[in-house]
């Protein structure tokens, strides 16, 4: 398929045509969203920050093995209740500032204990991004923030 660009012969008319396109949009509805006040809906599969379900984690270390940059690693942690499936009490911790949200940990997890949530506003005033299992297992509501609408 051969295409030959053809510039116009009459000057200035195409510029006015272009202006016309812009002017037409002047009367249309805006397509932008004012971010902090209004948020776009997130997809079901959206990959936000990682959450951990302490009740089902078996401490198999597959998530730590699957992490491409070592942001997910295993720590000893006592959840404060009995975990018969995880007798050695090994749980993953994630350094959120290093995490690249690739979801390979979620994919490798055999019990679906580690999953990507919908929280994407992880900025903080205090530089403490090393999320230990206690923080990882808190859901959006207990952090004082509702899930993004």
């Amino acid at each position: 398929m051969d295409i030959q660009p053809q510039p116009s012969k009459v000057p200035l008319v195409p510029i006015l045509q272009g202006m016309g396109v812009t002017l037409k949009h002047f009367f249309k509805k805006t397509v932008t969203t004012q971010y902090p006040e209004h948020k776009l809906p997130l997809a079901d599969r959206f990959r936000g920050r990682i959450y951990l379900k302490l009740e089902t984690c078996i401490g198999c270390t597959l998530c730590a093995q699957a992490c491409p940059n070592g942001s997910c690693y295993m720590v000893d942690y006592d959840p404060g209740f009995d975990t018969p499936q995880n007798k050695r009490k090994k749980f993953p911790a994630v350094e959120i500032s290093k995490c690249m949200y690739c979801s390979l940990c979620e994919e490798a997890c055999p019990t679906d204990s580690i999953r990507m949530g919908k929280e994407y506003e992880t900025a903080a005033y205090v530089r403490d991004f090393d999320y230990k299992p206690d923080r990882l297992s808190q859901n959006e509501h207990s952090l004082g923030r509702g899930p993004a609408q």
Partner: peptide
């Protein structure tokens, strides 16, 4: 694409032997 694979830029969608998710 976000509905398809959960990310808008860094998709990480293809896998050996297929793709990570089926269609939504």
């Amino acid at each position: 694409l976000e509905e398809l694979c959960g990310a808008r830029l860094t998709f990480n969608y293809f896998r050996f032997g297929g793709v990570k998710y089926d269609l939504p």
